[in-house]
Amino acid sequence: MRLVANSLHDEVAQRLRERIFSGDLRPGSFLDEPVLAEQLQISRTPLREALKVLTAEGLVRHEPRRGCFVNEVTEQDLDDIFPVLALLEGRCAFEAALNASDADLQALQVLHDKLERHARARRINDYYAANYAIHEAIITLADNRWLAQVIGDLRKMVRLARLRQLHAPGRLDESLGEHLAVFAALRARDAAGAEAAMRVHLTRQREALRELGRNRLAKVAP
């Protein structure tokens, strides 16, 4: 499919983001410009502009004389990012509890019903999509564009690893319980409780990723 000329490099950047997040372009993989330009049916100029955008976001890294590669999120990156994300998304939950209308809570109920159905059916990809939509809804309800902007940048980085944590043993059910705790606080208009529950949720995501890393190392150890 040929991309339209309007804001072409933004469209290209979005297409590449989707391929990175889906795993089609894997962490550490080389981004072959001629191949990508042919696949997207565009010239190299908008492709290079798109790669600059993704580099600024941290999804891509540029190595002099070698080209661009899909970035790899390190354990140190996750250790640095998750505490900040927990603080910021916790604040969003606090604000959302104060701002949410009855209609907003009803919309969140629909999303949580989906979340529960996907958890019961063990549909991890669908669960992750509903989980992502819930976080986005809470950020929107907070109605703070500065929070939303910073969280958006950080979430692009951890999204490379976040889906993985749902594969940890027992994590799917734990995640669901954490989400329901946040939602219960939102329904009660308990701002402090919603903030605390969201911080717990993000902290446990990081713990699940760390445990997965340990298990992976244990399997490859001689």
Rank of each mutant, 00 (worst) to 15 (best):
A142G: 15
L85E: 00
V200N: 08
D104V: 05
H135N: 09
I124D: 09
A185I: 08
R122N: 11
F69D: 02
R199N: 06
E178M: 08
R15N: 09
R199F: 00
K52P: 00
Q39T: 08
T140W: 02
S7T: 09
L163I: 13
I42F: 03
F82M: 03
V70D: 04
D24Y: 12
A208P: 14
I20F: 07
L217F: 01
N71K: 02
W146V: 11
H62P: 03
N125F: 05
T74F: 06
Y127A: 08
I81N: 06
L51C: 08
E11H: 13
E207S: 12
Q41L: 05
L180Y: 02
N99F: 08
A185Y: 05
D10H: 14
R162W: 06
E211M: 13
V110F: 10
A56D: 15
L166C: 11
K114I: 01
D173M: 10
S29K: 10
I42P: 06
A93E: 02
I151T: 06
A56G: 13
A86P: 12
R120W: 04
E33G: 03
N215A: 15
T45D: 11
D77R: 04
H9P: 07
F94W: 07
D173G: 11
Q39R: 11
L85A: 00
R15V: 08
N6C: 00
G58D: 10
E33H: 03
A103R: 13
G90N: 03
H112Y: 07
A86W: 00
A218D: 06
A97D: 07
E33F: 04
L186D: 13
E18T: 06
A137S: 15
S22H: 00
S175K: 11
V84P: 03
T74V: 05
Q109R: 12
D126N: 03
A148I: 01
Q205K: 10
L111V: 09
E95W: 01
L141I: 02
E178T: 04
Y132E: 12
R19W: 06
P222F: 04
I134H: 03
Y128Q: 01
A133P: 01
D10P: 02
R162G: 13
I151Y: 01
L85H: 00
E75Q: 14
E89W: 00
G170L: 10
G170C: 07
N99K: 13
N215G: 13
I138V: 15
G58V: 06
R48K: 11
L47W: 00
R216W: 09
R48Y: 01
L172E: 07
V150L: 11
E195S: 11
E75G: 12
L111S: 13
L111D: 13
A37E: 12
R159W: 02
D102C: 10
L88M: 10
C92W: 01
A121K: 15
G67I: 01
G213F: 05
R206S: 07
Y132N: 09
A137N: 10
G23N: 14
Q165G: 13
A197D: 14
H167Q: 15
A196T: 15
E89Y: 02
H201Y: 10
I81R: 04
Q41G: 01
K52Q: 10
